[in-house]
Design a binder for these strands. Structure first.
Ligand SMILES: Nc1ncnc2c1ncn2[C@H]1C[C@H](O)[C@@H](COP(=O)(O)OP(=O)(O)OP(=O)(O)O)O1
Ligand SMILES: [Mg+2]
Length: 662
DNA sequence: GGGGGAAGGACCA
DNA sequence: TTCCTGGTCCTTCCCCC
């Protein structure tokens, strides 16, 4: 699983001072002008015809990062521009910039059009939405966002303390991060190594060592768990915690608790972290950037304080608003979150329903107030891609495809999944990206199959783009089917798929696993407990049945799984003790791990048999009637209804929506 | 009008 | 001379029911 961290920023206009509580002493000293610069840059953008937007874009996505206070952005931008000029990468960026500019003009034209119309209805709708969201506001929780400082660099520095005062960066062709000394030169994550060298010729480059970072991240998480055992790691160096309970139990203020936590992390792991404390995750995330490095910032759980906080907040600082959307919003007149209100009646028509709701939520400073461990989350795809020297020889391309397929097989084995959709990605020498996908007739994971199904896509692309020259190739599988025995997802009743890891009988290519094919329920199933069993298959005798021949019987498949995650349904009435709802049959079960697993095994194997039978009958769908069987379809919709609010998904990086009222 | 697949793209670390 | 990698979600288009 990949994971990482976040951006940063500071500067608070005077008027926010009153509402936002600064909880770290060193804060006052470190104010920056990045915000101001950013705004200036955007202002410049609006009507400009020149290279301003391109230069701004070339600054990279992380210009809001901490440690830039003393940087002369325009000088940096000039150096980057000159270093990049003339390259293919640059040409591509120019083209993108042109496209964006066209889109901006369309937005402006549309807005001008809308201004002539009577938008009373749209304004009323927006007000209704505001009112509705307001009802869901929850100010009862204390959410903390923790973010390690210059994470990879800090970890490297532990092994090489002599680097402490020298500018250094981690990464190869592109930097993953750099220390704060290097940031003074304008060096940032995501920047090309050679550009960074132009900005800072003495810059020392260190290779990535992900195992080391992951190990360190685990150490840090161990400490976080003391403060909230159900914390959510959002990336390798970031986590959300709900410390409401902790503070209550220990009679501590939130700021004190977080100070203590940060101190503890520093003392035991030697890594400094920054934190934001607020009423919800979105605000906490913004706050954690304010006193970076090694600082914290608290925003009171108070509506007025929050509204004041959002009022002058540059939209770009909100997670989910990047370089492009920032420009588009600016074109519509929205630069700060506070600006959203006066333009509310246009937003839906200009940016669509989702973005509109997202923005309204931002204006109100709403966000998730429930935090849940990431283990309860189901991965959606696995993929691998590699950049190499330009290539256009068909034989070589096939060889590369084969390699990619093998890499992907290894990754899929590691995370124990197969996929029903295979996606190929090519980046041409011009940096233009092409993707093609197919649904495979069966879930696949073996290199032979991955190759077999992706080759025709490659061939087609070669045909459509004669003489195609490629600098990157990737493969990705989606519509995953778990090959784990009982995976944790099951416990959330979200979705469960199971299949034999050796459903290989179908493929002539893998005779080696063939011996093992007992019940090959290669297909996936999706279980929506209530609907599926409570509605038409109560079958009271399930429990009584002996555990039917376990369909899964493979070494690796057995290795993992069987991990119990507490039911997130925390309202489990305390008086009655706790229970888990079986994700398969929906009935409450003992929380005893062994008993529960036994019960689930039973339910699962029962499902397995049923599905195998069913498959025998209705097998065909994939090729033509590709899509869901009527049953699955119904179940799927059922699920959506059941989960109700968008809330559910615990995707750490969920972008839009979710003003979870918990 | 809705579901789904396919292609492209924004965004995040 | 040179600009990564792995993942999520959204939008737009299309076909089909
Ligand atoms: N574009 C990227 N590609 C790959 N890895 C990245 C990228 N950006 C960041 N990372 C990695 C390296 C970082 O150390 C780690 C955490 O990211 P992030 O929190 O944004 O920065 P940081 O921790 O290095 O500095 P900061 O002090 O600003 O938080 O994720
Ligand atoms: Mg960080």
């Amino acid at each position: 699983m990949t994971e990482l961290s976040e951006p940063s920023e500071e500067l608070r206009p005077r008027n926010e001072e009153a509402s936002a509580t600064v909880t770290d002493a060193k804060q006052a000293a470190t104010t920056t002008k990045v915000d101001a610069d950013t705004i200036k840059a955007i202002d410049a953008i609006d009507g400009s015809e020149g290279t301003d937007t391109l230069k701004y874009s070339l600054l990279g996505p992380s210009l809001l990062k901490a440690g830039q206070d003393t940087v002369d952005q325009s000088k940096v931008s000039e150096i980057i521009y000159n270093a990049s000029k003339g390259s293919k990468f640059f040409a591509r960026e120019e083209e993108r910039d042109r496209q964006h500019t066209i889109k901006i003009e369309q937005i402006q034209a549309k807005k001008a059009q809308l201004e002539k119309l009577d938008l009373t209805r749209d304004r009323r709708n927006a007000d209704a939405l505001l009112a509705q969201f307001e009802l869901g506001r929850n100010l009862t929780q204390s959410i903390v966002h923790v973010d390690c400082d210059a994470f990879y660099a800090s970890v490297e520095q532990l092994d090489r303390p002599e680097l402490a005062n020298l500018p250094f960066a981690v990464g190869g062709g592109v930097l993953t991060t750099c220390n704060y000394v290097a940031r003074k030169f304008g060096v940032r994550s995501g920047m090309a190594g050679f550009v960074a060298k132009k900005l800072c010729p003495q810059l020392i480059l260190i290779k990535n060592n992900f195992d080391k970072y992951n190990a360190k991240a685990r150490e840090i998480r161990e400490i976080l768990a003391e403060y909230d055992p159900r914390f959510e790691s959002a990336s390798i160096d970031e986590a959300y915690l709900n410390i409401t309970e902790y503070c209550e139990k220990h009679g501590m203020s939130r700021a004190d608790a977080v100070n203590k936590m940060r101190k503890e992390v520093h003392e035991t792991t030697q890594i400094t972290v920054s934190a934001g404390i607020a009423a919800n995750s979105k605000l906490a995330k913004i706050c954690s950037n304010r006193n970076k490095p090694n600082g914290q910032f608290e925003l009171a759980n108070d509506r007025d304080a929050i509204m004041e906080f959002m009022k002058d907040l540059p939209a770009r600082q909100v997670n989910g608003i990047g370089r492009v959307f920032e420009r588009e919003l600016a074109a519509a007149g929205v630069k700060t979150c506070g600006d959203i209100y006066e333009h509310r009646k246009y937003l839906r028509q200009l940016f669509g329903e989702k973005a509109y709701e997202f923005l309204i939520g931002i204006y109100l400073g709403l966000g998730r107030t429930y935090i849940q461990p990431a283990e309860g989350y189901e991965r959606k795809s696995v993929g691998t891609e590699r950049t190499f020297r330009d290539m256009n020889d068909p034989a070589q391309l096939r060889e590369q495809l084969r390699k990619t397929a093998e890499d992907l097989e290894a990754d899929m084995k590691k995370v124990e999944v197969k996929g029903r959709t295979l996606c190929i990605k090519l980046k041409m020498h011009t940096f233009e990206v092409l993707t093609r996908q197919v649904s495979t007739p069966r879930a696949v994971c073996l290199a032979d199959d991955l190759y077999k199904y992706s080759l025709p896509m490659l061939a087609k692309l070669e045909q459509d783009f004669p003489g195609i020259r490629i600098r990157l190739m990737g493969l990705r599988c989606t519509h995953l089917v778990s090959t784990k025995k009982v995976d944790t997802m099951a416990f959330f009743g979200l979705k469960k798929q199971q299949e034999s890891s050796d459903g290989a009988g179908q493929y002539p290519s893998d005779a080696m696993t063939d011996r093992k094919r007992k019940a090959e329920l290669d297909g996936q199933w999706e279980v929506w407990p209530e609907e599926e069993f409570l509605n038409h298959e109560p079958s009271p005798d399930i429990e009584a049945r002996p555990p039917t021949a376990d369909p899964v019987d493979d070494e690796e498949t057995r290795a993992h799984g069987k991990e119990i995650v507490p039911n997130p349904k925390k309202e489990a009435t305390p008086g009655e003790g706790e229970w888990f709802d079986c994700p398969i049959c929906g009935r409450p079960q003992s929380t005893d791990e062994r008993q529960l697993n036994e019960h689930i095994d039973l339910c699962l194997s029962r499902r397995a048999i049923r599905d195998t039978l069913q498959e025998a009958q209705e097998q065909q769908p994939p090729p033509l009637a590709r899509g869901l069987t009527p049953e699955t379809k119904r179940l799927k919709t059922g699920n959506e209804k059941r989960r109700g609010r968008p809330s559910g998904t615990s995707d750490p990086k969920q972008r839009k929506l979710f003003f979870g009222t918990s």
